[in-house]
Simulated assay, not measured.
Amino acid sequence: MENRDWLILHELYQHNNITKAAQSLYLSQPALTKRIRQIEKDFGIQLVHRGSRGVQFTPQGEYLAKCAEDMLIRLQAIKDHVASMEDRVSGTLRLGVSSYFTRYKLPGLLKAFKTAYPDVEFQVMTGWSKDVYKLVYNHEVHIGFVRGNYSWRGGKHLLFDETICVVSAEEISLADLPHLARIDYQTDDLLKAVIENWWTDNYTQPPLVGMEVDKAETCREMVASGLGYAILPRFILNGNNNLHTIDLTDSSGAPILRKTWMFYHEESLDLNVVKAFVQFIEQMEMEGSV
């Protein structure tokens, strides 16, 4: 059983498809099939059943695939530890980052960190904050940047918070919202729940949704064109001063805030590259550069 075989099992289990697994591994289908047969021979089992809808793992194959995830994490931890035994800051820093933070904040931060530590490389995985949270929790990344109030018992640092606001091209009144066309967009479950709870606390009828789009940025542009109002985190407005905004507030009149966090496991600070990056971000936050 070679180290790459664990990766093969992991990718095949993720995709349940020989073609897609081969593509993700940059292997030909015959080469991948050959390695699968060799794994089956080594363990004396059948890993998968093939059908028209892809592959189905046998109980033995599913067990090995789950072991593969643990093995890959362990192998990466060994590599990280070996790299951290040197005095200098080097190696690969694995980051999980929410999509919005990736687009507006991450490039500048990585450029500045790379300038300070030129021997560091990056592996960045992006997605919804809930997915990034899982990546950090499962030790698949060293550090995660998430937006929202997630429960986390490990190391964490509040980077900034932002208000959530009603956004429109023309000035409108909150009292008129139930009768105005709203533009909705795909977002993470926590933000969606905050907006829905605010709405039900203030109105007895559902919003009049006139359009649904895939991204908050697209929603912002539709609002700017006068096609309706939206409820967006202020960060998404990206300095657009031509739009009218009204911050959401709770029953006491306090603004409803969405927080952006840096999460990591405390034991990860034993790695030079992780410790240096956490300290770097904390310093940048103190200087107001995040």
Rank of each mutant, 00 (worst) to 15 (best):
G144M: 02
L47I: 09
G127Y: 06
H244G: 13
N17Y: 05
V132H: 06
W199N: 07
F263M: 06
R182C: 05
S90P: 01
E62V: 07
N197G: 05
Q46H: 04
V120T: 00
P255W: 02
G288H: 03
P207E: 12
P118D: 08
R53F: 14
Y264I: 04
V120M: 02
V194T: 14
I183P: 15
W128N: 09
Y26T: 08
R234T: 01
Q23N: 12
G210V: 06
T102S: 15
Y117H: 15
I281M: 01
D80R: 01
V290R: 01
L208D: 14
S168L: 00
Y117I: 06
T204A: 10
F263I: 07
L32F: 01
D184I: 08
Q14R: 10
V97T: 14
W152S: 05
K66D: 08
E282P: 00
D214M: 14
L248H: 00
E287Y: 09
A68V: 03
V136R: 00
L208R: 12
K130I: 10
L174V: 06
S225W: 03
F280M: 00
S151R: 12
Y100V: 06
H139K: 13
D189I: 07
N138W: 09
N149K: 13
G239F: 02
Q46F: 05
E217Q: 01
Q46R: 09
D188Y: 07
R37Q: 15
R234A: 04
K79E: 14
H49F: 11
S225E: 07
I73L: 13
G253H: 06
C219R: 03
E285W: 08
A175L: 11
L208M: 10
S52D: 13
E121C: 09
M222W: 11
H157R: 08
S252E: 10
G228T: 00
V124P: 14
K134C: 13
E196G: 09
Q60S: 10
W261V: 04
Q76D: 09
L109G: 00
L72F: 04
N3K: 11
V97N: 11
T19F: 08
E287M: 12
P118K: 07
E86I: 05
R147S: 04
I36N: 03
V209W: 02
V146Q: 03
A175D: 15
D184T: 15
A22M: 06
G288W: 08
P207M: 08
H244V: 08
T204F: 09
F101A: 13
N197T: 10
E221A: 06
C165P: 10
I256D: 00
F113D: 14
D214G: 15
M1T: 09
S252V: 04
F43K: 14
S129M: 11
K156M: 02
L93Q: 05
I18K: 13
S173F: 03
Y203L: 04
L269E: 11
A31G: 12
G228D: 08
N17L: 11
Q60L: 12
N272C: 11
T115K: 15
V278M: 10
H15G: 09
I36C: 05
L93S: 07
R74P: 03
K114Q: 15
G44K: 11
A68D: 03
Q186T: 15
D201S: 12
